[in-house]
Design a protein around this nucleic acid. Structure first.
Lengths: 224, 224
DNA sequence: AGTTTGATTTAGGTAAACCTAATAAGTAGG
DNA sequence: CCTACTTATTAGGTTTACCTAAATCAAACT
């Protein structure tokens, strides 16, 4: 039996998973602190407690950062699965506006039961991606690897929108309103002012995205 | 703006509401402690903190018990509304077995947003009772008075089942399995062994309920 | 090697919400 | 009126998760 898991612990595990995916290897306490919005000292404290448990969720060494243990990874993926299933459910069944999905899911992900998870998954037909285009980890804790890249990583070309970050509600709202949704085809060019010019589908008008906004969009090469 | 409300505070307010309805007047700390499953000292502590707030949820006086303030009552009814809407939703939309409704609702009632509340209410067509037959408080915090009585309050006669307590899952399961659900007509007689003999509808076989189980069932006079 | 710098950890402290044990306050019975 | 009993409160302590400020470590620079 792994150690007990609170809302706060869940959030640490999720953060370690996310940051560890962004930059493989050990995750630094400072990065965690920034990501979670807490003081670095709080992170050290928590990591020490987590690592000292009988069947720890993390492997931690002073000054060398932290890694998820297999059970920690399983738990983190379970929470991500909850989050994305809930978002999908709110969107599909309860007709939530897309920019309100994240906040509600972020709260509820910690409190739903296995049964709730199972029932909404069944109701939705066991979806594999959420409304933002993010992959939903399977019940067994598998997350299919995705080779998407950031819009800011390319200078120009034609791509398929893979996913859009769910973090920033206003940005999400405007991208959605402009039709920039997962699965749509886009033609990208870098405009003079350092912004990204995006033509959606075969429309003639272009959308101008600032680098900050462009960083929220992930794309796939057009394999046709 | 009323004081901040945590999961624990919510539970205190709900308990004060429930006990205050059962026995009108001030609610004793000891009764609260028993109902909440915490030590009496913890109750005293919490009541003092609650009552000391700027816009308190309760009116409390040493050794004389506690009352809900108008805003406390509003908050308590909001939580009850959440609980009963969630139960209805789990039952109607997610096909939960009836005996699992309470536990899930008890957890989630504290964490859903106004939007979630509004959306499930709409989806369900703004129901006024939950699957156990309990009235759902309105958005404005009104709870229609119901003149139901306990099965144990009568010796015999014909009645309509009003509601069944959601607290004890096994009892609930067996009552449900035997067709004793809100709205059904029952003929009651007191059997020799101090138990309650209940004939459902016009069936000939009777269900024998112990006093403990009978106390979970509320009935209405048959106004025909 | 010595020093600066930035990241990290230790030390000490706060706020909830609970606990137990000891005390005080009301309520009766003699 | 006083003792006994029940009920409620105070006092002091725990755990979780956070904080700030002060130390320490590791890595890079001269």
């Amino acid at each position: 039996m792994p150690q007990r898991s609170t809302e706060s612990v869940d959030n640490y595990l999720k953060a370690i998973l996310t940051l560890g995916e962004r930059q493989p290897g050990r995750v630094a306490s400072n990065a965690l602190a920034a990501h979670l919005g807490v003081a670095p000292a709080s992170v050290t404290n928590m990591l020490q407690k987590l690592a000292a448990a009988a069947a720890p969720f993390v492997e931690y060494e002073r000054h060398r950062g932290v890694l998820l243990s297999p059970s920690g990874r399983r738990r983190a993926l379970e929470i991500v699965r909850h989050h994305r299933l809930i978002e999908t459910f709110l969107y599909e069944v309860l007709d939530y506006p897309i920019e309100e999905l994240h906040e509600e899911a972020e709260r509820l992900e910690h409190f739903i039961s296995e049964r709730f998870e199972e029932r909404i998954a069944a109701k939705l037909g066991h979806p594999t991606t959420d409304p933002h285009g993010h992959a939903i980890p399977s019940l067994e804790g598998e997350m299919p690897p995705r080779s998407s890249m950031c819009l800011t990583d390319v200078s120009e070309g034609t791509f398929i929108v893979d996913s859009i970050s769910d973090r920033d509600a206003p940005t999400l709202r405007s991208l959605q309103a402009n039709g920039l949704t997962p699965g749509t085809k886009v033609r990208v060019t870098r405009s003079p002012s350092d912004s990204y010019s995006v033509r959606i589908g075969r429309s003639t008008t272009a959308l101008d995205l600032s680098p900050e906004v462009a960083r929220e969009v992930r794309i796939l090469p057009l394999t046709k």
